[in-house]
Computed example of a mutant assay.
Amino acid sequence: MIIDINRVLGPIPADDVPSRDEAGLVAELDRLGIDLACTVHSHALFYDPVAGAPPPASGRLVHVPVLVPGPLGTGPSTARLVRLCPAEHRFALTGPHGLALAGDLADRGTTVLLGWESAGFGEIHRLATLLPRLRVVLVNTGYRALRELADLMDAHPRIGVDTATLNGHQSVEWLARRHGAHRVWFGTGAPVSDDAGPRFQLDHLDLPDDDVALIAGGNARTLLGLPGDSAPPRDAARTGGRT
């Protein structure tokens, strides 16, 4: 089972993308042989997370709400996976309201997706130090952040990473061997970033099969509370029969 933990649904600025609607996104998942995608809506990501967007109707898409803390924020969520965007939505990740929201998420056992460029090393380190129970998956880190990323993952065992932009030679393998495959999630960041590259990389990871299975979908399946045989059907003719 292959689960993309980092996907955007809806139109994006300055580009016409197939994933502007659910049908287009599901077709892209079929094309790439991806069973399930955890999606934030572009309206919530780039425009107004308070107004939000309706959860997707397709069983292939898992809604990931974008949360904003404070009295002008979105309020709490019962989702198992949420996204925080402090830079995009102009709030302090480790300010009083930010820490109150993050503490509530830690108490609920909620996992947070956090963009590397949205927070930065210092704020992420401070958040993980103050709330060591909070699970954070850093997304869109890029290969240039590998040293800082390793520093954070060494210090904070509940910080993980997605593969969206970890395209340096053997970067994913190095992180999985150093920190464990249970801390690495398959993600593409599409359509803001490329999806075919991370998908190709997944098929060619130089790691044991069990580790690849965790990265591909096992970690996300556990996070989402999905049973092991829960992959929804997809068009085998379009995916070359891959399962």
Results as ranks from 00 to 15, higher is better:
P54D: 08
T243K: 10
E123K: 13
W116E: 08
G180C: 01
L205V: 00
D206P: 03
R133P: 05
P18T: 10
L166K: 00
R221S: 15
P13A: 11
L175F: 02
L146W: 01
V62F: 03
V64A: 10
L152Y: 10
R20S: 13
V139N: 03
R80D: 07
C85L: 13
A53L: 07
V40A: 15
R238K: 12
H182L: 13
H89E: 11
N140S: 13
W174V: 15
D203Y: 06
P55R: 09
A150S: 15
G59W: 06
A57D: 15
A44W: 05
P198A: 00
V139Y: 02
P157T: 03
A53C: 13
A37E: 07
R133C: 09
A106S: 14
R80K: 01
S77C: 07
A176Y: 00
R133T: 06
D206C: 07
G10D: 06
Y143F: 13
S193I: 09
R158L: 15
L138A: 11
R60L: 11
P76T: 05
I3V: 08
R183G: 14
A190S: 14
D48Y: 07
L152C: 10
H97M: 08
T188R: 00
A220D: 00
V192A: 12
P208N: 06
L202M: 10
D107M: 10
V62G: 02
D235Y: 03
P157G: 14
T141Q: 15
G187M: 02
V66K: 07
D211N: 03
I3T: 01
L223T: 04
A53I: 02
H97T: 09
V40F: 11
L67C: 13
V139H: 03
R108W: 14
T129C: 05
T74G: 00
D15K: 14
M153I: 10
Q201C: 02
V139I: 09
A236Y: 15
D195C: 13
V62M: 06
L36T: 04
F186H: 01
D206A: 08
P71R: 03
F186K: 00
A196C: 08
S77T: 13
L25T: 06
R60N: 09
L226H: 03
I34Y: 11
S193Y: 04
H125I: 05
G115L: 03
F200R: 11
I2G: 03
I159Q: 09
D206E: 07
P54Q: 07
T165C: 02
V26M: 01
I215H: 02
G103E: 14
R221K: 08
G73N: 01
G241A: 01
R199T: 01
T129L: 11
L146C: 00
H169C: 13
R221Y: 09
S118Y: 12
P227L: 08
T222C: 06
P86R: 04
I215M: 02
P65F: 04
A92G: 14
I215K: 01
